[in-house]
């Protein structure tokens, strides 16, 4: 037996959490929201999801093959990027858009920086920003829920922005509708209940932590209430949370390991920062929604947060 003994440095045991397990858990938890999207917007949504995932995985495979690096598509991170990108698109986009977006996300935003762990910006969100800047028309056309033909509809946030409506009742929507996802929007962001189920699961598994999402959501909700469109302390707290991509962004995009701070306190700062910027964009900016831009801007601030928000070292005052 002597010759077969493994000699390695301690520790000799490790936790069962491995990157592929975590990535695929997030992926599968998110599928519920995608299923809801397909239910609400039809098979077209499924096509967008599949093309986006295929594009991301294929791009990762090709680049790693070309660079003669280890192929890591089985770790689930490229597939997850593809899924998240699709969730940030309207179901009505032409199918070449998720294709181009997936390529951009993996090739430019991830692999060009050195692969998983080295990217500065969330690849799915950066790709969304790229698509929005390049083809704004396609990106802001949304399908009406439960109609098979693509009748364009504005999102509730856009309606407010354009001053078309001044209250929920004028939209013909109840909070319950918004909670279930019966509204126009990106295909993976509308069904809040599905997203919350996934979020609770990931929090319970300790794959994500509450600091970023809670900081994010409460900041947006709080500011929207305090500085409401209808007056001071008269804003619509619930509407601000249920509309747009806040829940998707706060629980699944802002919590991306690679592009968020290392300490829990830092993650809280990060979440609050995201919330602040989201509110400013929604209220004063040119776009109706600011979740993705706010996360991208805060991604750039992460090194700064990590520099100043550090854990207290034992025995150091």
């Amino acid at each position: 037996m002597q010759n077969n003994l493994i000699v390695s440095s301690s520790p000799h045991i490790a936790s069962h959490d491995a990157t592929p397990k975590i990535m695929w858990s997030v992926f599968f938890a998110l599928l519920l929201s995608g299923a809801a999207g397909v239910f609400i917007f039809g098979m077209r949504a499924l096509m967008v999801i599949l093309v986006s995932i295929a594009s991301c995985v294929a791009t990762e495979y090709l680049i790693q093959k070309l660079r003669r690096k280890k192929i890591t598509i089985s770790d689930g991170s490229a597939a997850l990027t593809g899924l998240l990108l699709a969730y940030n698109l309207s179901s009505t986009v032409p199918l070449w858009m998720p294709l181009v977006g997936g390529f951009f996300a993996i090739a430019i935003c991830k692999q060009a920086f050195g692969g998983l762990g080295r990217n500065i910006f969330n690849p799915a969100l950066a790709a969304r920003a790229f698509l929005l800047a390049s083809w704004p028309k396609h990106m802001t056309d949304f399908a009406r829920p439960f109609t098979l033909d693509a009748i364009s509809s504005a999102t509730p946030l856009a309606c407010f922005k354009l001053g078309k409506v001044s209250g929920m009742d004028e939209l013909g929507l109840s909070y319950w509708d918004m909670f279930l996802g019966k509204r126009g929007g990106c295909l993976g962001e509308v069904c809040i209940v599905a997203l919350l189920i996934a979020a609770v699961y990931l929090l319970w598994k300790k794959y994500i932590w509450w600091q970023t999402p809670l900081g994010f959501i409460l900041t947006v909700g709080g500011l929207s209430w305090v500085f409401g469109q209808q007056g001071f302390l008269k804003g619509d707290f619930l509407f601000s949370i249920l509309s747009g991509g806040l829940i998707l962004g706060a629980f699944f995009m802002a919590t991306d390991y690679v592009t968020s701070p290392l300490t829990k306190q830092g993650q809280l700062v990060f979440g609050v920062g995201c919330g602040l910027i989201t509110f400013v964009i929604r209220r004063f900016g040119g776009y109706p929604e600011g979740v993705s831009y706010s996360i991208l801007i805060m991604n750039a601030v992460v090194p700064l947060i990590d520099r100043y928000v550090r854990p207290r070292v034992y025995g150091v005052k």
Binding site: D17, T19, I22, K70, G114, G115, L116, G117, R118, Y257, V258, T259, S260, P261, L262, T263, K264, Q267, R310, P311, R312, V313, Y314
Partner: peptide, 21 residues
Amino acid sequence: DALCIRCSRCVQECPVGLMPC
């Protein structure tokens, strides 16, 4: 050759309060 994905687990669990990664 694994790269750190900045998941922050080591930072949260370090009993000394270091940032091992």
